[in-house]
């Protein structure tokens, strides 16, 4: 059952189209990530689902009800903003109980509900503090506790981790996923960070220019990108592209291995490319080799990511043989950028 659904949803500001006919069906209990660069319309889409923004056209369905005309409070949703939007003049306890009081919950039930939410996020000892006395991570937990306390049908999260420092973000990401699994609440999560998207999502919807370019599980979106935008947006360093006839050939930097280091096995068909090393960047866990494919695309920049664990000494200016599985080579139409069926160029010769 799809619990949140958008049908041909559009949002226009004057002549700018922020969301351009999005059809999206979020399943019950699912963690769906809306991923895309800034300005792709993902936050606008989320705000329309929340009811903070009125769509220009199209329908929003939450739990079998068309909610187009309903204000946010009647959509059974909770939202966490990037800034956390804690009420600065209220204590943590009052912040968490605010939605319950607004709903008119009897006073006797509010206390236990707040305590339960606080216990879940381990913030019981912060209940009497004001938001300004909290660290970034604590604020985030308070915001999540306030969102879950009223047991909504849907969580809407707008980049809730982007205000945390890098180290905290990793652990917060892990916790967030655990909470979501435990509660089983349908969640829509907006981010521009592909690592968050890959790590958190049951499915990822990659957005660009107001449209969903691809929707699928993280591995599928990563391994089988629908077009050059998705292929180039996911992955760091990004996928290498070079033109060949009316096709664009794509190879992920980490899919190439030194021929000498390839252990073989699996019976995969391998493609060998000649690579001239220009510059080497040592990132600790990985070595990034910048250069070009001397026989296939001598003029285009090409990056290969070799794990440091592979002992493979290289020198700038020299040519080496690298191999890639034939199934890892992606083919796109050079005009439209859309994925096409493989046309193995290596078999002609």
């Amino acid at each position: 059952m799809a619990i949140v659904e958008t049908k041909a949803l559009r949002k226009e500001w004057g002549d700018h189209t922020a969301v351009d006919g999005v059809d999206l069906a979020v399943r019950e209990g699912e963690f769906l990530v809306l991923l895309g660069p800034s300005g792709c319309g993902k936050t606008t889409l989320l705000r329309m689902i929340a009811g903070l923004e009125k769509q220009t056209a199209g329908d929003i369905v939450i739990g079998n009800r068309i909610v187009n005309a309903l204000p946010p409070r009647e959509r059974k949703i909770a939202m966490v903003f990037q800034s956390y939007a804690l009420y600065p003049h209220l204590t943590v306890a009052k912040n968490i109980s605010f939605p319950l009081r607004a709903q008119g919950m009897p006073r006797a039930q509010i206390g236990p509900a707040v305590e339960k939410a606080a216990a879940m996020f381990g913030i019981e000892r912060l209940l009497h503090r004001k938001p300004r006395q909290l660290s970034g991570g604590e604020r985030q937990r308070v915001a999540l506790a306030r969102a879950m306390v009223r047991e909504p049908d849907v969580f809407l999260l707008d980049e809730p981790l982007s205000n945390l420092d890098a180290k905290l973000r990793t652990s917060a990401r892990d916790e967030l996923q655990q909470f979501q699994r435990k509660l089983g609440t349908t969640t829509i999560y907006v981010t521009h960070d592909q690592i968050e998207a890959m790590g958190l999502g049951d499915r990822i919807a990659v957005m660009s220019k107001g449209k969903i370019r691809q929707l699928g599980p993280p591995q599928e979106v990563y391994n089988e990108p629908a077009d050059t935008f998705v292929a180039g947006f996911l992955g760091s360093p990004p996928m290498n592209f070079f033109k060949r006839g009316d096709l664009l050939i794509g190879m992920r930097p980490e899919d190439l291995l030194p021929r000498s280091a390839y252990s073989g096995g699996g019976g995969d068909k391998l493609v060998t490319v000649k690579f001239r090393v220009g510059r080497i960047e040592n990132l600790g866990a990985d070595n990034l080799l910048y250069g070009s494919l001397t026989d296939l695309a001598p003029k285009e920049r090409f990056i290969i990511d070799v794990p440091s664990a592979i002992n493979f000494p290289v020198e700038p200016g020299k040519d080496y043989d690298f191999v890639i599985k034939a199934s890892d080579v992606k083919f796109f139409d050079a005009q439209s950028g859309v994925r096409t069926s493989p046309k193995p160029f290596w078999e002609k010769s």
Binding site: F81, P88, F98, R150
Partner: peptide, 15 residues
């Protein structure tokens, strides 16, 4: 007052 605070109050159901 940041707009987020007003949006949050609306989401939280404050009339």
């Amino acid at each position: 007052i940041p707009q987020d605070i007003h949006d949050q109050a609306e989401i939280d159901g404050a009339r």
